[in-house]
Nucleic acid binder design. Structure first.
Lengths: 165, 165
DNA sequence: GCGAGTTAGTTCAGAAATGAAATATTAACG
DNA sequence: CGTTAATATTTCATTTCTGAACTAACTCGC
């Protein structure tokens, strides 16, 4: 009953009481998303610390790992990982420095920068994957399969509207 | 069909194909939350720019606004807004500097710092609220009332599990 | 082919956020 | 009481992120 979200919800409820036109439901959703995101971010950072990797870096690595040839252009990586391009430059610099990925220029279009996993990057992923699997499993263990499917459908619909706006 | 999330989902699907034990559903949810959060964050920052306020500052102001006496202790504000205490110090410093809130020490417990809206803070909120209402309404316009209720229920359940973990 | 307009990435200065240590006050307990 | 532990907030060095300007390469129409 008294989740970590309760105080937030309480405050929004007061605002709604004062301003009946205030979009209470929408505000609650947005706040919930923020709380969840921050929580996941912190937990993931903590878990990955032993591998010297943080959450955004993990996200990039996994996006590369999820391709046939373990490679993506910077702009594709940016979209897939949800990071802005300036941040991709910084994050990939760091991952290169750590030897987990490498840059290469595309011969077809020399503006493009391809980023690909190195052997070491692949090995690192395989190494933290079991722990990460545990975390992800645990994070979702409060929901049934059906609820996860439903949640995913609703979040996508929500995101679609944001894209449209 | 091809939402901004499609590339991300695609990458996770490949990973699942390679590693059937990979918690695909959970990973998708977490990524969706991140995408939505970043999008909302950007949109809100943009909308509030004319008032010289950003998303986290808005969150703090609204949490104060949602109390009977427009005041909260720093730690309460931290929990309600989902910001760490060091960040609360920084953000409230800035809001004080702008004259929107003010600090006062609690006589009962002199460790505590109470933060309260000023007249100007209140006026600023009333001033941006119509625009903010528009944004929130629009963000949720893709979902029906029932879907919003359902989404909220599922997100809370998800958050509860994170708190428990 | 060539100049105007796009697209892909990077740079850089400044803003935002964090962890860990420090400060100050209060609670707890022998 | 006194002193140890706990709580509330701040400080500060560092890390993370962003917008805006920039460079380089490509496209397209003429």
């Amino acid at each position: 009953m008294s989740s970590s979200f309760q105080p937030t919800e309480q405050r929004l409820a007061v605002t709604r009481r004062r301003h009946p036109a205030f979009p209470y439901h929408s505000a609650v959703l947005v706040r919930l998303v923020k709380h969840i995101y921050k929580r996941v971010h912190d937990d993931t950072n903590l878990l990955l610390k032993p591998w010297g990797i943080n959450h955004p870096e993990y996200n990039l690595l996994m996006m590369l790992y999820g391709t046939e040839d373990n490679a993506l252009y910077a702009s594709q990586l940016s979209e897939a990982a949800g990071e802005k391009s300036a941040n991709i430059t910084r994050l990939t610099n760091e991952l290169c420095r750590k030897g987990l990925i490498e840059r290469s220029l595309d011969e077809g279009d020399r503006r493009k920068v391809a980023l690909s996993l190195t052997e070491q990057g692949l090995a690192t992923i395989e190494s933290f994957l079991p722990a990460m699997r545990g975390l992800l499993d645990q994070q979702a263990s409060g929901l049934t399969e059906a609820e996860m499917t439903q949640l995913r459908r609703l979040l996508k619909k929500f995101l679609d509207q944001l894209d449209r706006g």
